[in-house]
Each structure stands twice: as structure tokens, then as C-alpha cells.
Design a protein around this nucleic acid. Structure first.
Length: 480
RNA sequence: CGGAGUGUGGCUCAGCUUGGUAGAGCGCUACGUUCGGGACGUAGAGGCCGCAGGUUCGAAUCCUGUCACUCCGACCA
């Protein structure tokens, strides 16, 4: 295959420098830029619109399962945060504190929420008394703050946008079911709407959320072979609610503990969209969440009738329900093509004098650059088919990439070889000891356990690291 | 938190070694010619050289401090 001609000079190629490519795409697609505060981003219209579409699609899926939205404060009193020991120990190094109100020093300092388990529990401790009050299935869309030392746009920022769902239930089984249900919601959302295939499983003890009994994760594979934890769903048992003294009376007036879950997905997922689908020409957005699905580009727009026809087409597309825009600027067509590609708009429609004469338009797919001539009469229906195809093809391509980048290791040498010479996930058996996780990380070049899948394969009888009997099959990988 | 690097019009950067009128390209504004893969001409606008001290007749340039950002590592669910 001849190397594809590089059309856009301002974006570094992925093979040359993946990190620089990522930064270039973020900048050229105008998703966000840096603010004056380290790790806090300015979300620009193009980036925020993606988040809005993620919000609306995901929120709809949540509500179908009975989720109700609420909003709790940004400040948490220190005493509240202290209530669950594992939790505070997990978060202490990365919380920011408010110590003054105006000129006055506060008697008790407040932390800016890094997550809101404590606030939700505090509300429930005051309002839940009877089995009739259960379950509570709540969610909030908000931002949180974690004082990260190293930051990158979307992937790891100090302030980031997310949703955090929190629920409490009368029984262990019901809470566990909710944990898995939301994990499934994330999996289908990410795979269907974002066209990103994932590896799904449980976290090991050391990778679990602070205070959780079980953490379920979906892990996506970026184009450079690194994993990205894309959403998590946690089962808390009743340690957390007990710490907050949340009890309910059953029908026999006996007091019981409640069982808690929480689950979240953040703007980090935008980083995944960029790194899974993007190419050397820029961003590639899945049609379902693309803020603009089609951009109309008039050719030789100074010529009689071209702009009128292009605007007619735009109106027809909008009327048919597409998110459509026109680029009627004075730029040259080539410039407009490049920009549409950098922005990741899934399709463009070229319409020029020749097309008008023939009663047709040219649809060009962003992902393949395939040009499809469509009759003007059929465009409003054909475009939908093309967008559906793009959505499907993006997933298929990403799935093939994922499948090709999962290898297997039975011995430590194979593990090292896989990490160093093949990119992606490595499947290997594990004894269940944290010491072996650390050893593998140290020996095999920074890989961590990503998850234990629901359906484990039996690769061998013994741990890849220590040779003792294996308990689980684990997906390992370098992660963002 | 350790190592490295960078702060100069909106953006990318040159100028700094060897102190002496603030520069280029892109972008922006106006007009004209172009228009099926980042077109071109002409004329313009736009800069307390990150910030604070110091050295000097004179500092973007030298010295000290400080802040911010980027990359690598450690840390991070």
C-alpha cells in the first residue's frame, strides 16, 4: 500500500509522536484549550457539544433504568469526608481544601468534592427510615476536583466533568444487580453510541475504588496500545452506609443496613474517542454523538445559483432531522475539506455547478474518504444510511484492532515479550497476590492489571509470576 | 515530588551566545483576482518580550528570585 498522502501539515502523524498527535488534534479540532490554572481546561464549543451529546444519550439510558437526577454541593466538610476510613485514605493526597470564607479562616475546612459518596450518604442518613424509602437511585451531572500532578487534556485533568450515580438498596442482591446493570449500560453506550469496543471485568483488590467491595470496569484500547479505563461501577456492600448510620426498618420493624453502589463516566471518554477513532487528518467522530453530522461545502460558490442550492440542501437536511451545517466562507474548497476532517465531522456533502446540472451531490465519508454520488432527490434518506454505515464501520474497525492486540502469556518471559513487542492487552494467569501484581508491573515494563473478565479462560494452572496455583485470568496493560 | 525543556502580536517561532530603534511566517481587516484537496496580489491593524528585583549610560538579551505551561518519571481508582 502506498503511504496515504498527508493532507494536513499542522497535525503530527500518529506514528511519529502519538502524544504530540493527540495534543495537535485537541487543538486543531478546537475541543478545549488551556486555562490559567494547571489541569483546568477551557471546554470550547466543539468539545463541550460532544459532552452535551454524551450527556443526553447516557442520561436517557439511565432514566430508562429508573435513575433520578439530583444536585449536591461542591463543598464537603472535612468531618464528613473522614467518616469512611478507606475512602479518605484513598483520596487524601488529591483533595483541594477551602480554608477561608472571605477574609475569615473557617472553623472547619471544606474540601472541593473529588467524588460525592459522603454527601449522598449524608442526605440518606437523614431521610431514609423505612423499607418504603428504598431504593434510592440517584445521579448527578457535575464537575469534580482532584489535585493531579500530571495533567493532560481530557485524559487527566484536575477539574473534570462527569456524572456520578449513587444508589442504596435494601438487599445485597439488589445492589449487586444495580452495580452490574450500570456497568452494562456503560458498555452498551460506549460500544453502540461511541463505537468503542471494550474489555469488561472486575478490578483486582489493589485497583479497586477507595472503599469499594467490588469495582467493575470497562477498558478501551487506544491506537497506541495503551488502555483507558472508560467507566466504572462500584459495589460498596454496607461499609459506607454503616459509617453514616443509614438504617431502615423492615415490615417487622427490624433495623437493617443498606447496600450501596456508585458509578461514573467522565469527560475522559472524549480522550478515548480521539485516540480510538482519530487519524492523521484529525478527529473522527462517531455519527451518533457528533455535534455536526454533515457539513455542506459549496464548490465554486460565487457562481450563479450554487449558494442557493447549497442552502436549500442544508434546509432539507435539517428538516429531515440531521445535525447539519454549511461552510459558505470565502475559503477555498480544499481548505474547507481539511477543516471538516480535522473537526471530525462524519460526512460532508460537496455541491458544485456540475452536481447541480446533474441533479446530484457528492457525499464524502470522513473515516474512509470514500466519495458517494447521490441523487438530490434521495439525499435525505441516503445520508442516514451512510451515517449508520460509518457508525457501524468505526466500531468494526476498532473491534478488529482490539482483537488483534490481545495476546497471551503463560510465562514471565512471554509476558515481557508481549509487553515490549506487541502493543495492547496481555492475558495471563494470576495467583491473586498483590505482590505478584507489583512484580509484574516492575518486570514487564509498567503494565498494571486492567481487569478480571466475567468469563475467564484457563491459560495454565499457575500464576505467570510466582508459579503458585492461579486464581484468575487477568487482562494486563499499560494504561493512561 | 524528581529530571528536562519552554514563556516574545491571536498562533508557531526567530532574535539572547557577543546588551544599543521589536522581527518573520501563519492568522486577522479592506479591496481585487481565484474556487472539485489547505489559492494569490496589494494595502493595513496588532507586542508594558510571563512577573518581580538586580547589574548597566542602556536589558527581550546578563544575574537572582518567582509563576505558569509542556514532556519524561514517581504518584494517581
Amino acid at each position: 500500500m502506498a503511504k496515504e498522502k498527508k493532507l494536513v501539515q499542522s497535525i503530527t502523524s500518529r506514528d511519529e509522536d502519538f502524544a504530540q498527535w493527540y495534543t495537535d488534534v485537541v487543538r486543531e479540532a478546537k475541543l478545549c484549550d488551556y486555562s490559567g490554572v494547571k489541569g483546568c481546561l477551557n471546554y470550547l464549543p466543539n468539545g463541550y457539544a460532544i459532552w452535551e451529546n454524551i450527556q443526553s444519550d447516557l442520561d436517557k439510558r439511565f432514566k430508562e433504568t429508573g435513575v433520578e437526577n439530583v444536585y449536591l454541593p461542591v463543598l464537603i466538610p472535612e468531618s464528613l469526608l473522614q467518616k469512611e476510613k478507606d475512602h479518605i485514605e484513598g483520596f487524601a493526597p488529591e483533595v483541594a481544601w477551602v480554608t477561608h470564607g472571605g477574609m475569615e479562616e473557617l472553623q472547619e475546612r471544606f474540601c472541593i468534592r473529588p467524588t460525592s459518596e459522603t454527601l449522598f450518604c449524608d442526605v440518606w442518613s437523614k431521610t431514609v427510615q423505612s423499607y418504603r424509602d428504598l431504593p434510592k437511585v440517584w445521579n448527578q451531572w457535575c464537575s469534580v476536583l482532584r489535585w493531579e500532578k500530571t495533567t493532560r487534556p481530557f485524559l487527566r485533568s484536575r477539574e473534570f466533568l462527569w456524572q456520578e450515580g449513587h444508589t442504596i438498596h435494601a438487599t445485597y442482591e439488589e445492589a449487586e444487580e444495580r452495580t452490574k446493570m450500570m456497568w452494562e449500560v456503560y458498555k452498551s453506550f460506549v460500544e453502540e453510541d461511541l463505537a468503542i469496543p471494550v474489555v469488561a471485568g472486575r478490578k483486582t483488590e489493589s485497583e479497586k475504588f477507595a472503599g469499594a467491595q467490588d469495582t467493575y470496569t470497562i477498558e478501551a484500547l487506544m491506537h497506541d496500545g495503551q488502555a483507558l479505563q472508560s467507566a466504572t461501577s462500584h459495589f460498596f456492600g454496607n461499609a459506607f452506609p454503616d459509617a453514616f448510620n443509614i438504617k431502615y426498618a423492615d415490615k417487622n420493624n427490624e433495623l437493617h443496613s443498606v447496600y450501596e453502589t456508585s458509578w461514573g463516566l467522565s469527560t475522559r471518554i472524549i480522550g478515548a474517542i480521539i485516540m480510538v477513532h482519530g487519524d492523521d487528518s484529525g478527529l473522527v467522530l462517531p455519527p451518533r454523538i457528533a455535534p455536526v453530522q454533515v457539513r455542506v461545502i459549496p464548490i465554486a460558490q460565487h457562481k450563479e445559483g450554487v449558494l442557493d442550492k447549497a442552502n436549500e440542501l442544508l434546509d432539507a437536511l435539517k428538516a429531515a432531522g440531521y445535525r447539519a451545517k454549511i461552510d459558505d466562507s470565502e475559503k477555498s474548497p480544499g481548505w474547507k475539506f481539511s477543516e471538516q476532517e480535522m473537526l471530525g465531522i462524519p460526512t460532508r456533502i460537496e455541491i458544485g455547478p456540475k452536481d447541480i446540472e446533474n441533479g446530484q451531490v457528492v457525499v464524502v465519508r470522513r473515516d474512509t474518504r470514500e466519495k458517494i454520488v447521490v441523487s438530490m432527490d434521495e439525499i435525505t434518506t441516503k445520508l442516514g444510511e451512510i451515517l449508520e454505515t460509518v457508525q457501524k464501520d468505526l466500531y468494526t474497525k476498532a473491534k478488529a484492532f482490539l482483537d488483534e492486540h490481545i495476546s497471551t502469556a503463560v510465562t514471565m518471559d512471554e509476558m515481557k515479550d508481549a509487553v515490549q513487542n506487541k502493543k495492547g492487552f496481555v492475558k495471563a494467569m494470576w495467583c491473586g497476590e498483590e505482590a505478584c501484581e507489583d512484580e509484574i508491573k516492575a518486570q514487564a515494563g509498567g503494565v498494571t492489571s486492567r481487569c478480571i473478565p466475567m468469563e475467564e479462560e484457563h491459560l495454565s494452572d499457575v500464576c505467570v509470576c510466582c508459579g503458585k496455583p492461579a486464581k484468575h485470568m487477568v487482562y494486563w496493560g499499560r494504561a493512561y
